[in-house]
Amino acid sequence: MLEARLEQANLLKKVVDAIKDLVQDCNFDCNDSGVALQAMDNSHVALVSMMLKAESFSPFRCDRNIALGINLTSLMKVLRCAQNEDILTLKAEDAPDVVNLVFESSESDRLSEYDIKLMDIDQEHLGIPETEYAATITMPSAEFQRICRDLMALSESVAIEATKDGVKFSCSGDIGNGAVTLRSHTNVEKPDLNVEIALSEPVALTFSLKYLVNFCKASGLSSTVKLCLSNEVPLLVEYGLASNSYLRFYLAPKIGD
């Protein structure tokens, strides 16, 4: 059986809220290492990969592998019934028909319980190779969100170019062009505002802004975001969570000109 207690229901609520417009029906794969999810959007352009490690829960118990097939719209309806500060416990039997969610208020004796019916989801699982990326950019998640939103006003796609001088986000559209360049930057007082560029070779790739703006819905989960790029491979956008848990998005680049 599965029994996993999250100190803050809000974490799962934010994760599901961030991915529910990209993917609809997902298997939450539970085993003794934690709860994982991998799902592609219908057009096979973007992929969501979530890992909530066992250490993110206290306690965490999962005796055998259980796949919980859940419709995210349904899950969101139930998660909206939780207060942000509520403690959330997920429970499921070994061959479950439902997943049980219990919300407990830390301040009152209120306890609410919901069951969500599970679905049989035959999901394509992709093998994502371990990649040594040519460029890794760590930056404030709010800054990345702002750049994507700003450039989307002009164009449907953005070129991301990383060189030793910095990282340039540029676009061109019917009304004109736009570009934002960031250089490595260290803010001793507020390290969350740092921009770090680790580069082994220059990279230039073009991506659909519609997807990037969608990924940025995860900005509330982490003050920083990591962009990992290599020429001619999908972009990795990673939001790190506590206890080495993460929410990752992969996006296939645009091809040709």
Partner: peptide, 14 residues
């Protein structure tokens, strides 16, 4: 602009 790449051509099915 060019075409949109597909993840299936980068990542193999498990």
């Amino acid at each position: 602009g060019g075409g949109q790449g597909n993840l299936m051509s980068f990542f193999g099915m498990k």
